[in-house]
Nucleic acid binder design. Structure first.
Lengths: 317, 317
DNA sequence: TCAATGTGTGAGTAATTGCTCAATAGAAAG
DNA sequence: CTTTCTATTGAGCAATTACTCACACATTGA
């Protein structure tokens, strides 16, 4: 009995059904009897109205902008995960907001009943995240530190993130008993053959999710501040085109790892390939803009937690 | 019952859930796992987002029947603007549908980069319309209330439409610090000489667009319900031939303002002449039929937003 | 005329959503 | 510190919605 006067009519009906459904809040059964059609047809009209974008849904809430930005970031940089938190213009903290969001995301992984391997970097941001983690009991999971926590002089670095984390969530943990930087590629090779280190390396390679901060470069970069890198070396790196650093791995403005140079002395566990694991970078703020952009561009990270202002920048460039 | 600061968080969550549900099209199960809550909680958040009007749905499709009715109304009553929304026969809401349409039309005016002066009435319909307005930033426009918001006993009336509106669109606003009705023509004259009132009066006379509800008369008319008019006076007016009321101005079945009587005590700003400004009446439903017909016949309004059933009536008589 | 094709339909069924209710947790009151 | 009250939660179930399938009817092109 298909009447086929005009395609237009069908859209009109769809609009009408969509209106009754979304605006008037009727059920599809009611719509069917109002319009004198079967319930299934009513359902089809309603979903047609949606598919044809006859119905426009809008969310009026500050959070909407964040969600939208996250969706666009995901699309733009082909990310597995993106979370944008509202910016707090009045705060100059480098972590407020993203720390909570990062902790929430880590928690989500930890809630899995199946065992997962989490790898984490270090730095102020990660430390702030761990501080936000609630105590949990996760004997099924393993956490591994991607970077060494020993300075060249043998002392432990301040941000012993992995230990704090293990403490809080009660999971088996695998630190890297190494400096971030060693003195030569040869030394690195030797050290990486040590059995403890090898275990960590292998675990890192199998990590399901990786959480890392993104380090900017410059005279007051964290790597310098924490005494891992001399200021002259930093200057050299920057003239060589370095744009940022993740776990000590230096990359240029296109997000490509710098060949040679300092990267041959980085003792950190390599980041897992982005097609298998979630590699989530967490950072915000003007000082991180360029490093973040480069890391995203080069696909060094495939997940991002940042704030609205930073997201805007990353979408604009 | 505790008014918790977390209440805000709950709305944020609701917004987030609503966005994921309506905009991103996720199921409530997915939302639950994304947000780390139970499915039921996700469902509650989604429906909260709806209940709190965080989510606004609009239909952008000229439904043929409605369009046609609108066109015929325009022709028949010589209107500048007409919009007919689909009827929902089962609903006895006096505003569903026309509220969204009214908000859309107001939004259209507000989007103008050139400054415009909008005048608005008051009442349940207008209130419902304002609730549908999205937040905007319109410092270039001015909005003025056509009617007073003070009762005879000095208290403010419930539907403080102008303030809600100004709040949402961030425009300069000019309330009428007067009752709808004063005790005598002389008092009105005195009050209208007050500087604040004069400013509002002048602005109202220059309004580019006017949005008003259309009040029916009768024992349960809004004017009586809200305590502006005693029931005996109402009865007198009806025997004197009154058919309806806009902003307090009484008119007869031909749409002519009633001479003398109560109109000499109405303190509202006169409606701008219909040849210059758009005077858009918004109403639907059987109870409004006669008042609408009269207002249209007499040209008190030159724009109309109503529903299909009402449009049919207005075209038939 | 007659397949081929495309669109729409209802039935049936799976998936999703909404609601009720008992249990719980957390805050206010004592 | 305990009790009481209320808001919130999760489970179970009912209602609603989405999807798949086989079929009917038109249009199209040999």
């Amino acid at each position: 009995m298909a009447r086929k006067p005009e395609n237009n009519n069908r859209l009109d009906d769809a609009a009408r059904a969509g209106w009754l459904y979304y605006v008037a809040g009727r059920t599809q059964d009611e719509i069917a009897s109002i319009m004198g059609i079967s319930r299934q047809s009513a359902q089809r009209l309603v979903s047609l109205a949606m598919a044809e974008r006859l119905i426009k849904v809008r969310l009026d809430h500050p959070i909407a902008a964040c969600l939208e930005a996250a969706a666009r970031l995901k699309d733009r940089y082909d990310l597995k995960y993106a979370d944008v938190v509202p910016s707090d213009p009045g705060s100059d903290s480098a972590t407020v907001g993203i720390a909570e969001a990062g902790a929430a995301e880590i928690e989500r992984w930890l809630k899995s009943p199946d065992p997962v391997v989490l790898a984490i970097g270090t730095g102020r941001t990660l430390k702030a995240i761990i501080d936000q983690l609630p105590p949990m009991d996760c004997p099924q999971h393993r956490i591994v530190s991607l970077t060494g926590n020993i300075r060249l002089d043998g002392s432990a670095a301040y941000y012993n993130v992995i230990f704090s984390m293990a403490d809080v969530i009660n999971a088996r943990h695998f630190p890297m008993p190494l400096p971030v930087l060693v003195s030569s590629p040869e030394e690195r090779e030797v050290l990486h053959k040590q059995s403890l280190v090898k275990i960590a390396l292998e675990l890192g390679a199998r990590a399901d999710a990786v959480f890392v901060g993104v380090g900017e470069l410059g005279a007051d970069a964290p790597l310098c501040e924490d005494g891992f890198l001399a200021r002259e070396e930093m200057a050299d790196l920057m003239t060589a085109g370095a744009a940022g650093e993740i776990c000590g791995w230096m990359f240029d403005h296109d997000g490509a790892l710098l060949a040679g140079s300092i990267n041959e002395r980085v003792a950190s566990i390599p980041l897992p390939p982005r097609d298998r694991a979630a590699v989530i970078g967490i950072a915000k703020g003007r000082r991180k803009y360029e490093a973040l952009r480069a890391a995203l561009k080069g696909g060094i990270i495939n997940g991002l937690i940042t704030d609205e202002t930073t997201a805007e920048y990353l979408l604009k460039v």
